[in-house]
């Protein structure tokens, strides 16, 4: 029988606990209160030891830390093996993590090693008696699925940017530095090279504002219109499947059911008609602007604000006026 405690899995990168960390800690605290248990944390990453005690400010009782040069780059097999030691030490009822790329890799590994049920990418999560209940978007947001896991332990990942981040208070967690030598010895897969993402370039799934272009741009040589608007806004650049399949843009920019699902505060769809599979990936954006010369384009039914017009005229005007606005 597991304890009533919650184990929050946290990632340490670039000198700090990642952005999703406080979101996980907020839900960990709430669910631990429901269960009448404590919150513990498993924090991994090179240099993580220095950040562990401060997790006490989020109500963490014990912080288990995996910190060695082997944790400098993400290696799922290694992190899962180290997490197993933390899980064994506190025997949690719930293991909670963020559904970032590392979290999507790590969650199933931990769930399988515990022979536990896993709720992935949840937008709502609760404890209902002895069970865990959750809601998760499926079909890239075309539908919401309610699920129930009857038997503990549970593993769940929460969608980033959905839950409010917990506020840090005062207090120190008890830091338990894990000996990672055994985990490192047993991990056959190694990181050979790392090419971090270009700094300064805004990542689609983390962006507050996204400017996406579609077939209305007529060719890759015109995408600078989208890039310039994005730059003026400090936004990330996205693309429809049509232009990715045509080879105009890299697949990493594709928004939609076979690309990325995004929910920024502001989404510009430029020269995008609004195919079902694209809309699925961006319909949860808080505010949608559509610019398209076809007044019948289905994207206008979804858009909060539509401008019927040629992207070749509207985009430069928009970019110029936004630049003036931001001075």
């Amino acid at each position: 029988m597991p304890s009533n405690d919650v184990l929050a899995i946290l990632e340490f990168r670039g000198g700090q606990v990642t952005k999703a960390g406080p979101e996980v800690l907020g839900q960990a605290r709430r669910l631990a209160d429901t269960l009448g248990g404590a919150v513990h944390a498993f924090l991994y990453g090179e240099g993580a030891n220095g950040a562990a005690a401060a997790l006490g400010g989020y109500g963490v009782t014990k912080a288990y830390v995996a910190d060695s040069p082997a944790f400098a780059a993400y290696n799922g097999g290694l992190v899962a093996r180290a997490a197993k030691d933390a899980v064994a030490a506190c025997d949690p009822r719930l293991v909670l993590l963020a559904a970032t790329s590392p979290g999507k890799d790590l969650g199933p590994r931990i769930a399988a090693s515990l022979d536990a049920g896993l709720a992935v990418d949840c937008t709502a999560i609760d404890i209902d008696g002895d069970a865990l209940t959750a809601v998760r978007p499926v079909y890239a947001g075309k539908a919401n699925q309610s699920i129930r896991i009857a038997a503990a332990p549970f593993v769940a990942s929460i969608r980033p940017n959905v839950f409010p981040p917990a506020e840090a208070g005062a207090g120190d967690a008890e830091v338990v530095a894990l000996d990672t030598a055994a985990a490192e010895g047993e991990t056959r897969i190694k990181v050979a090279e790392v090419a971090p993402r270009e700094t300064g370039k805004v990542e689609l799934t983390e962006a507050d504002v996204i400017v996406s272009g579609g077939r209305g741009l007529k060719g890759p040589e015109h995408f600078h219109l989208v890039e310039e608007l994005a730059e003026a806004l400090g936004a990330a650049v996205g693309a429809s499947r049509a232009v990715v399949d045509a080879g105009w843009r890299p697949h990493s920019e594709q928004v939609g059911q076979t690309g990325k699902t995004v929910s920024p505060n502001l989404y510009f769809a430029c020269g995008i008609s609004g195919a079902i599979q694209h809309v699925a990936g961006m319909s949860s954006s808080k505010c949608i602007v559509a610019i398209n010369k076809d007044p019948e384009a289905s994207i206008f039914k979804l858009a909060d604000y539509g401008v019927v017009g040629d992207v070749f005229e509207v985009l430069p005007a928009l970019t110029e006026q936004i630049r003036a606005l931001k001075g």
Partner: peptide, 18 residues
């Protein structure tokens, strides 16, 4: 281990302002 209890369509977004 996981049971689906319900599938729902998300609330329709009310766009359409030109």
């Amino acid at each position: 281990k996981v049971a689906v209890t319900k599938l729902e369509l998300p609330p329709e977004k009310q766009g359409g302002k030109i």
